[in-house]
């Protein structure tokens, strides 16, 4: 099973051969973490960039794993919070 299939099985819960935005996001985040875990001898590490990207990557991986491993409705609650933020208006109002 290639990496894409493995990642899709983990992220989506099924083997998917086509591109999927969440699988791609997870794969990119994992790659960022792996790069820090195994720094290349000749590769420069930009510490400022690292400080920004590493927590973001961790957050994505954590989000994906939580959605898969915790109860379905716990993630629904999280999504509800995210929707509140997404549906916010400039004046701070939220469409219900």
């Amino acid at each position: 099973m290639n990496a894409r299939r493995r990642h899709s099985a983990l992220v989506l819960g099924r083997v998917e051969t086509r591109e999927d935005a969440t699988v791609n996001l997870f794969r990119d985040s994992l790659r960022d973490i792996e790069r820090v875990r195994h720094p290349g001898r000749g590769r420069e590490v930009d510490m400022d960039d690292l400080r920004t990207r590493f927590p973001r990557a961790l957050q994505v991986v954590e989000g994906v794993l939580q959605s898969r491993l915790t109860n379905f409705f716990e993630t629904v609650d999280d999504l509800s919070d995210l929707l509140d933020a997404a549906n916010e208006r400039e004046d701070g109002a939220v469409d219900i």
Binding site: T22, G63, S67, F72, L79, N87
Partner: peptide, 21 residues
């Protein structure tokens, strides 16, 4: 990105996109 990371499950996508305004 935070939202996308929580949307692996098809049914979570349903919940999210049906309420995204």
């Amino acid at each position: 990105r935070r939202a996308m990371s929580r949307l692996g499950d098809l049914q979570h996508r349903r919940v999210f996109y049906e309420k995204l305004e």
